[in-house]
């Protein structure tokens, strides 16, 4: 494992009964890097995020975060250590206002150095006008932004973004790219799962392509798109 790696996945596998969701996965994410995870539906991308964020423990293999073995640690401890995630399908605290939603993350997110002010976070994700609304009254687009806001509120080192652009119109994409750029500029490390190609190609430094739980390609966006295995996985 190299010294600058924020995240290191070492031969990680995850089985659910007889089904193999992730198989013998190995990769590293360097500090400040934006890594994209790509693959057809059911490839194991979200399972991988769930393993990194502590929702699942891997069936085998180790996960290191900033040099520390975090395999099998519960989700709240990983949040305290500096890993935050968004959910593909927004999972807000429905009875709380948007502001209280992210207050949970700042109050319980651990004793790290103070992060961004709430107002700045809301400005960044473009949710300022709805911050006092109960989350149950927010539209899906706003809930996706709230996911981002909450992830930022715990002031993470590593942020896992699960399809934040899914369902967005083309007109909204520049804004999402801008947000990822901002997060990147803050020096945070990002792992991005995305189906929207424009986001993938423009936002990430490196892509790992997964199919049926296995890594089939790795490289810059340009390299990966030309890879025969990737083309085969997507277009059969």
């Amino acid at each position: 494992m190299s010294e600058t790696a924020v995240l290191s996945i070492d031969r990680v596998s995850k089985h659910f009964g007889g089904i193999v969701a992730v198989k013998d996965m190995t990769f590293e994410v360097q500090a400040g890097e934006v890594l994209g995870l790509m693959g057809p539906n059911g490839a194991g991308k979200t399972t991988l995020l769930n393993i990194i964020a502590g929702t699942y423990s891997p069936s085998s293999g180790r996960v290191h975060f900033c040099g520390r073995d975090i395999t099998g640690l519960p989700a709240h401890k990983l949040c305290h250590l500096g890993i935050a995630r968004t959910y593909q399908i927004p999972q807000p605290f429905t009875s709380l206002s948007a502001r209280q939603n992210i207050l949970v993350a700042t109050e319980y997110g651990g004793k790290k150095a103070a992060g961004m002010e709430h107002d700045k976070i809301f400005d960044l994700v473009n949710l300022s006008e709805q911050k006092d609304m109960p989350a149950r009254d927010l539209a899906t687009v706003s809930l996706k932004r709230l996911e981002l806001a909450r992830a930022l509120a715990s002031n993470p080192t590593l942020i896992l973004l699960d399809e934040i652009a899914a369902g967005s119109t083309d007109a909204e994409l520049p804004r999402i790219l801008g947000i990822i750029e901002e997060i990147h500029k803050m020096g945070k490390t990002v792992v991005l799962v995305e189906h929207v190609m424009k986001v993938m190609v423009e936002a990430v430094d490196r892509i790992i392509v997964i199919d049926k739980g296995e890594k089939i390609a790795e490289g810059t966006p340009g390299e990966v798109m030309k890879d025969e295995k990737v083309i085969a996985a997507y277009f059969g």
Binding site: A53, G54, T55, P74, A75, H76, L78, C79, H80, A84, R85, Y87, Q91, P92, F93, T94, S95, L96, Q100, L103, V104, A105, E107, Y108, G109, G110, R150, A153, S154
Partner: peptide
């Protein structure tokens, strides 16, 4: 108090509470 915020978070969504650092 802080405890009430955490309890409400757990009631609303345990997974999100955990990934926001709440020791459920």
């Amino acid at each position: 108090a802080r405890l009430g915020l955490g309890l409400t978070a757990i009631r609303d969504n345990e997974n999100t509470a955990a990934s926001s650092g709440v020791n459920i």
